[in-house]
Write a protein that binds this DNA or RNA. Structure first.
Lengths: 368, 368
DNA sequence: ACATTGATTTCAAACGTTTGAATCGTCTAC
DNA sequence: GTAGACGATTCAAACGTTTGAAATCAATGT
């Protein structure tokens, strides 16, 4: 049993043990259509022997012969970003009933690893690749290779439709507007804003939404109270930026009753910075985030934020992928625009009506 | 170019384009020893053609022939547990220079998926499997199959040495003692404790360490102030338990100046519960966690906790795995005991000397 | 002229599976 | 008694790659 160098049990081991041909064993164990014609006694014997020897079909040999790998590559730009996990769960959930497996790799925000893994996915003959990435960089030769090898791609978190790549993303503009409207409806008029880094795709549209909503609400954003995070990929840089900018806001001497932060970690940084200066959240100042990651939920006070339907984005991306695979490579007709999902405001304890003089809180705050 | 049904460029495509045999092409592109003998001009031509056509070797065909997959399966019991990611990073980091790839799968706390994926890893002929799991369940038939197929296993987060499986874990007993000693040295005498769920492997040793350290410090743990989390695998159940137990503590009427929580999320739940009752952390009550996950760091106040060297555990597990692979299957000599790494106390703002009457804070607190 | 060497390239078998076509009895029909 | 049909099983080629052994050719030494 298992005399092979590889140490694995093969079809021919079973065939020998049963005194029968490899073909029949294969037909039975792979439940091929022909297995209807195999005698019951034979089938039983083969199955029993397979179980006894601990047989598991060799995915490599099988895929080589069948010319199907049943595998979708999932390339996460940074798995330690809480953003990723729910997307991946959504993908797996949808892939499972379609009898596909995901091959998950983590580029750890490193360009070099990204390339390496992408190549690996091609070598592993993944039938398609789903990329989860919000950071921008130039994908030069790789995309060309992918096209040459006819591997469909779906990207989550960025719009690459102008390069004819199916894209799934959240409506950042609407999300930004959602928070701004929320603060305005609470009565805030002096609002500090922390924008996202330039290189992050979400930054620009989110900022657009914020500005537009401010204009509509008749709120002027004081340029002295608008800050921008630097281009760092370290997951904690948002938090540290929040702390730093909170102190800068206070030092500026300008009056503000709320801080609209680019994302949740930045918001948590702001909370830390303001708290250390003795302010209470939300009595003395409201703070809002974006993303609805775990820390925003379990911090005290909970952070008011915008939830992206991450799981749904994973489901949608997978659905588009399966559809593309179904179409086969002859019909290259891409769906034109990006697939946009809608975000949702999650109100928690970090936002409340504004106060006068930063000490006493107003009973109501229903401006606008 | 790429006339094959699979749509992928193969060696024979290149061979045809260059009017040369497949063997030579293979020798050149796989940089086999023989390639020293290939004429420079031929080599150049082959490489250029390969690049032009976008050739990527077929990992399936290659592994089938070479009888090596260069793959280590990594089976995470729950990827949404922040515990996992750093371990996985450590694994990848160590695997890379050894020219191995990790095949990462997520069982999402579902027994059924765990089995399914384990079987999948066997079919994919991973040369070894690293399991990241803290929850306990009965691995019946699978472990036997694995033994039959001679696939080495390393488990991170549990002690399975009695089943002769190499195990890497943190010294939970020492960790528990670390927190208790910290609180004692701050002067706390009345300490509430929230124990982990029964089914979690870490629970028992951590509780042992806590009790022993309490005895040594001359502290009596009031049974009315000892709580235990239920057996729920939902990631947020710790947080909710913390909130609930915090209220129960206050309702009990007993006096306590600190809460030692099973893990960080539980600690954050306690902070929420106490805050909602009007207590301030740490002035009115200290709170400690365990694990040092992201939310503990970015919450305000930061949670004093015990850090597990997760990345290092990943590195160590991989090192043991590579060593086992090196030994080959003939020498089955397992290393006897579990491999234990030491945890580290991280002091943040959530712990401070105790107060009198829960309102004024003592200037110093140097009891014991 | 012929064996020897060395540099370059090719042959052919194998890895473990799948599958269309072929085989071999046995049975029924006319 | 032969043709056809059917049921159960096997043949053999293929998937794309690697690799030990063999082949080819030109140049060198005797």
């Amino acid at each position: 049993m298992g005399r092979h160098a590889s140490g694995h049990v093969t079809l021919s081991d079973i065939a020998q043990a049963c005194q029968i041909s490899v073909s029949t064993v294969s037909i039975v164990l792979s439940e091929a259509p022909l297995s209807r014609h195999v005698a019951d006694s034979t089938r039983k014997q083969i199955q029993a022997t397979a179980r006894r020897l601990g047989y598991h079909p060799d995915a490599y040999a099988r895929s080589l012969r069948r010319r199907r790998t049943q595998t979708i590559g999932v390339l996460a730009f940074d798995m330690s970003d809480p953003f990723c996990i729910p997307v991946v769960s959504g993908i797996d959930e949808k892939l499972q009933p379609a009898h596909y497996f995901s091959l998950l790799v983590n580029a750890q925000t490193q360009r070099e690893l990204f390339d390496r893994y992408f190549r690996m996915l091609l070598e592993r003959r993944t039938e398609g690749v789903i990329v989860i990435a919000s950071w921008v960089f130039e994908e030069t030769g790789l995309l060309a290779d992918i096209a040459k090898n006819h591997v469909p791609i779906v990207i989550v978190g960025r719009d690459l439709t102008r390069r004819r790549i199916t894209s799934v993303l959240v409506n950042n503009r609407a999300g930004g507007a959602l928070v701004m409207r929320h603060l305005a409806s609470l009565g805030h008029r002096q609002i500090a804003v922390i924008r996202g880094p330039d290189e992050m795709f979400d930054s620009a549209p989110r900022w657009d939404g914020i500005r537009q909503a401010a204009v509509k609400a008749g709120i002027r954003l004081d340029p002295q109270l608008v800050f921008q995070l630097p281009n760092l990929s370290d997951p904690k840089s948002g938090f540290e930026g929040g702390v730093r900018f909170a102190k800068a806001m206070l030092a500026s001497g300008r009056k503000f009753t709320a801080v609209l932060a680019f994302d949740d970690l930045t918001a948590l940084g702001v909370v830390r910075g303001l708290s250390e200066a003795g302010l209470r959240i939300p009595q003395d100042c409201s703070v809002t985030g974006f993303d609805d990651v775990l820390p925003a939920d379990v911090a005290t006070p909970g952070i008011t934020t915008v939830q992206q339907p991450l799981r749904e984005m994973g489901l949608l991306a997978t659905e588009l992928m399966l559809k593309a695979l179904d179409r086969g490579q002859q019909d290259e007709a891409q769906d034109a625009g990006p697939h946009i999902v809608q975000p949702r405001l999650v109100v928690r304890a970090s936002s409340a009506p504004p106060c006068v003089g930063r000490q006493r809180c107003l009973e109501t705050g229903d401006a606008i």
